[in-house]
Design a protein around this nucleic acid. Structure first.
Length: 292
DNA sequence: ACCCGCACCTGTAAGC
DNA sequence: TGCTTACAGGTGCGGG
């Protein structure tokens, strides 16, 4: 579900609740959604004892950071442990005041009690997401270095260097989190439409002006989506930490609009499968991109 | 290196 | 009204 804009909206709304707060208690309802990371950076199961401490129990949270689609709750120095949260397809992080009823208590896997009396919940029906206890800032950096640069601030030069090395379809390359972090199936189609580039164009054959247009389209689309609070689709699964929906779905040009008229030229939008994902584009507006 | 299919899960919507 | 099927915002694996 959540791509970079949704994750950024969760980050901002979450930060208002947790920054400077101490976690008084942690309840882990499903152990298999949580992993701990060892000193070598490898994923391990949570230890049988002390798991709550790894999940920030007794610790003061000083920041919430984001890289691509991943979030990290950062604890106070000198320990500066991180709790990385992946929302997967259906994950939610939300806060409720003391005594406030839980809208839907099913599939809640972790609960953090804060010193304000508020509670933070990790809920994830499909369980493609999870939490990772990372014991220190250098290990978080190392983990995030395996991802590509953050898509919100991607420059044409960085993108050109990465796309120049591969002959994959541009859509497939942009979805690869090791190449570029944060873009998923909604925003890749929206960005390629905005840049007038065909999703199947060969990455390394894009010329400098196209890559420039693409980098600025990615930044612009993601920025506008964040300003709209992200995309909340009909199943209503994406909500920020305050339970609020976004409205960017109302501004989608192509995603979810196959067969409808192109917002630019009224040609019926094409639908197909690329990189194993449903792909929507305008065959008239998005020329080969590599040649125009 | 790259692509595909599939697997991991649950919920929802569409089709019969 | 069922029951069945397809599909969904993500990622990772094995095989060709």
């Amino acid at each position: 579900m959540p791509e970079l804009p949704e994750v950024e909206c969760v980050r901002r709304s979450l930060l208002r609740h947790v920054q400077g707060r101490t976690v008084s208690a942690v309840a882990l309802f499903r152990r298999d959604v949580a992993r701990s990371v060892n000193a070598r950076g490898e994923d391990r199961r949570l230890p049988p004892r002390g798991a709550e401490f790894q999940l920030l129990e007794g610790v003061r949270i000083v920041d919430v950071r984001r890289h691509g689609k991943q979030l990290a709750l950062i604890s106070e120095p000198p320990r500066a442990a991180a709790l990385v949260v992946h929302l997967g397809m259906s994950g939610q992080l939300f806060c409720l005041g003391p005594g406030a009823p839980i809208p839907d208590p099913s599939h809640i896997h972790v609960r953090w009690q804060l010193d304000t009396g508020a509670r933070l919940f990790f809920r994830d029906p499909r369980r493609f997401g999870g939490v990772w206890a990372v014991p220190g800032p250098s290990l978080l950096e190392k983990r995030w270095a395996d991802l590509g640069p953050d898509a919100l601030t991607i420059t044409a030069d960085e993108l050109a260097a990465r796309l120049g090395r591969t002959r994959r379809a541009i859509k497939s390359a942009l979805l690869d989190q090791r190449l570029l972090a944060g873009v998923g199936n909604i925003y890749v189609d929206e960005s390629l439409f905005a840049a007038r580039i065909l999703p199947s164009a060969i990455s390394s054959s894009l010329r400098a002006p196209h890559v420039e247009r693409l980098a600025s389209a990615i930044r612009a689309v993601l920025t506008r989506a964040i300003d709209s609070g992200g995309s909340s689709l009909s199943d209503g699964m994406y909500l920020d930490a305050d339970g609020r929906q976004g409205t960017y779905q109302l501004s989608h040009s192509v995603y979810g609009r196959g067969g409808q008229p192109c917002p630019e030229c009224r040609t019926s939008l094409s639908t197909g499968l690329l990189a194993g994902r449903t792909t929507v584009w305008c065959r008239r507006c998005q020329g080969s991109g590599a040649r125009r």
